[in-house]
Design a protein around this nucleic acid. Structure first.
Lengths: 193, 193
DNA sequence: CTATGTATACCGACTAGTGAGTGTAATCAA
DNA sequence: TTGATTACACTCACTAGTCGGTATACATAG
């Protein structure tokens, strides 16, 4: 019954998440985030040292749910590693057909902050993609594949390519084409096993 | 001997290109572009109706050289279609190791303008990627591949994935991993021919 | 059981600067 | 004369970040 009111800090991060993901980081002002959170800007700056700090919090918040979702899609899919990998892309195609879908938050942030290589947000993105790649590598290694690491890397590239291309042309068919490519690569590796 | 002085308009577009590509569209002001072009803001607005108009001109200017460069890389590479495709990624890996490299202008623009789906710049990006895909499809069809269109699409996804990932982690090894994946896919298709 | 201190969380109003875009009059070259 | 350009002042909305102050809670000292 206690509805677990989110803390002020969480409300700010949630507002930032909605706006930064939906509109882009540079397109959204700190004032807009504060207003959406129902908080004054002064309070926002009480909880976060700067906009950059808020950006970092926005990405950190997305890391775990993102990973969990992909893991779930993989686990719940029927078939072997190749089918499971393709299923991830299928689920993503479904998600990407919603208008509110705006690609991968980490990739878009790195595109926006390309002129700030050491930015905390970039580092968070790098770590997240590395976690992702390691997880895929573990899945593939469990199938007894020698080149699990290389394969995982290629699947991640396909995933991110699909993110980027579908964000551009809004055609989810590209997501499935990427899934088919991943399927080919994984089943090829399994056949060579 | 005539050094072919660029027109004022071209100087403005070149300045915009340097700054937009290097810093990001939203991070660069119209004043900064005018100053870099050695022109008053009023002159800039004589040639372009708005910043959005200038953004579109920036991307239009990059289309043809971009395509030409990739065509050249493909044409000059040794070997068959699979090797030639991989060579494109190798060349890109070399380009991407320069610090001034900041990924794909079209993809980064679509990430920055994700909240403006109908923006002219987005449309230019979509058309450019489509041209790219068609060109690859023609190359593969020339090898007598039935699934040239699907294959071209997958190669483009790998290319764009490599763009996105390497922009994030600045590790050109990912470019080569993508090239290896493209090589696998193309040579697999050739073997099934 | 008051009084004082201290830490957390919060706010309204503000600063100093930047954003895109405009108005206008003057200059320059063909 | 016409198209291109400059100089520069200007608008108006917005931007990241700050100043000074307040309300509450929970201490501990007298």
């Amino acid at each position: 019954m206690t509805s677990a009111e989110p803390s002020t800090r969480d409300r700010i991060v949630n507002a930032a998440s909605d706006l930064f993901y939906g509109e882009g980081i540079r397109a959204v002002s700190v004032d807009a985030v504060a207003e959406k959170a129902g908080v004054t800007k002064r309070t926002l700056y009480y909880h976060f040292a700067s906009k950059d700090d808020l950006i970092a919090a926005y990405l950190r918040q997305r890391e775990q749910p993102n990973l969990a979702r992909f893991r779930r899609w993989y686990a719940e899919a029927e078939g072997g590693a190749a089918e499971k990998t393709r299923a991830v892309f299928r689920n993503l195609a479904r998600a990407a057909s919603r208008p509110s879908w705006k690609g991968c938050a980490f990739l878009r942030t790195s595109a926006e902050l390309a002129n700030m290589p050491g930015h905390p947000a970039i580092r968070i993105g790098v770590a997240h993609k590395k976690d992702f790649e390691s997880w895929f590598a573990a899945m593939f290694a469990a199938e007894g594949l020698d080149d699990a690491a290389q394969l995982a890397r290629q699947v991640v590239i396909l995933l991110d390519g699909a993110f980027a291309v579908v964000l551009l042309n809004r055609d989810p068919a590209y997501m499935d084409a990427a899934g088919d490519a991943a399927f080919s690569l994984v089943s090829g590796a399994l056949a060579r096993r």
